[in-house]
Structures are given as C-alpha cells and as structure tokens.
Simulated scan of single mutants.
Amino acid sequence: MKVSEVMSRDVQTLAADATALQAAQCLAAHDIGFVPVTRDDRIIGIVTDRDIVARVLADNRDPNRTRLESIASNEPKYCYEDEDCEHVARNMDQLLVRRLPVVNRDKRLVGVVSIEDIRPRSAA
C-alpha cells in the first residue's frame, strides 16, 4: 500500500515568518502536535509543541516576536506520497518520529502521515 492511500490531505501549515504564538494557537486549535513551516510552498522546517516550550518559553523568548524560521528544525524529514507504507514505517521507527510530512516528487507538500495511519497496514 502506498502512503497516498492512507495519508491525511488536510494539513495545517504556517509560513516561516509566522510567530511562535501563532504556531501554539494553531496547534491548540487543531489539536495537533506539529506543523510544517513553509516558504513558497516548500517545507523548510517543522515546529512541534515541544519546540515552542524548549526553544521559546525555556529560553525566555517573546512568543509574539519569535519567528518560526528561528525555531524550526533545519532539516525536516519527510516521505514521498508514492512510497510503500512498510518502508516508511521502518524509516519512522529509525528516525524515532510518529508523523511525517508527505511530499510529491517535486517536493511540494501534499499531506501528512502518522505511524498510526500505516502501522496496521505495514504489519500485514
């Protein structure tokens, strides 16, 4: 089974110049734990709820002024929509991540997949 068959296409994203406060509000409003950070429809990073705590609040930075590009992961991990679910599940295990952005072969964001989406399918 391919990732495109199980991924969610409803992905929240935020621009690189959005603030940490906007990210926190987005995460809370959508009950999600991470948001891809984009510039020109390309993923430049990922911000998690933990990033906001560790890189903004713990460092006593102003969440209203801290831009996501300054706290996002530098090298975001992702998978391709046409990859096999079993392969992606193994990669997620190795990376110790529970969710990944999904891109097409032009590296444009098309969805997000969680380990819960693919684990039952990859176990077969």
Rank of each mutant, 00 (worst) to 15 (best):
M7A: 14
S70R: 02
V103Y: 06
P101R: 06
V11A: 14
I52G: 03
A123G: 11
A16Q: 05
D59A: 07
G111E: 10
I46P: 05
H87D: 09
P76Y: 00
C79S: 02
N104A: 09
N74F: 00
G111A: 13
E69Q: 07
N74G: 03
L95V: 00
T38V: 15
I43S: 06
A28G: 02
P63V: 14
E75Y: 02
Q94E: 10
T19F: 06
L95N: 02
N74D: 01
L68S: 08
A89W: 08
V56G: 04
L96C: 01
T38P: 02
V102T: 10
A23G: 09
R108L: 13
V53P: 04
E83S: 08
A123V: 11
R90T: 07
A72F: 03
M7H: 15
T13S: 10
Q25G: 08
D106H: 12
R39Y: 03
T19M: 05
E116D: 14
P36A: 08
L109V: 07
A54G: 00
R67V: 05
T13F: 08
V56Y: 09
R61N: 11
I32F: 02
R90S: 13
K107Q: 12
T38F: 04
N60V: 04
E116Q: 11
R99Q: 12
E116P: 01
I118H: 11
E83K: 10
L68M: 10
R119C: 15
Q25I: 11
L100T: 06
V112Y: 07
R67T: 07
S73T: 15
Q94G: 01
L100Q: 06
V11C: 12
V113L: 08
K107D: 10
R67G: 01
R9T: 15
Y80W: 03
S73L: 00
H30A: 13
V88L: 10
A20H: 14
N91W: 06
D51F: 06
A29N: 09
A28V: 04
E69T: 06
V47W: 09
E86R: 15
I32V: 11
V110I: 12
T48D: 07
L100D: 04
P76V: 02
V3I: 15
N104M: 08
D31C: 05
E69M: 03
Q25L: 14
I44K: 09
L27W: 03
E75L: 00
A29E: 11
E86Y: 09
K107F: 10
I52T: 04
R65K: 14
V113A: 11
Y78M: 06
I115F: 15
L57H: 13
A23Q: 10
S114N: 13
H30L: 08
Q22E: 15
A16S: 11
I44V: 15
N74M: 00
E86C: 13
N74E: 02
A123D: 13
L109K: 05
P101C: 01
L14M: 07
C26T: 15
S8G: 15
E75S: 05
H30E: 06
I71A: 02
A15R: 07
D59Q: 13
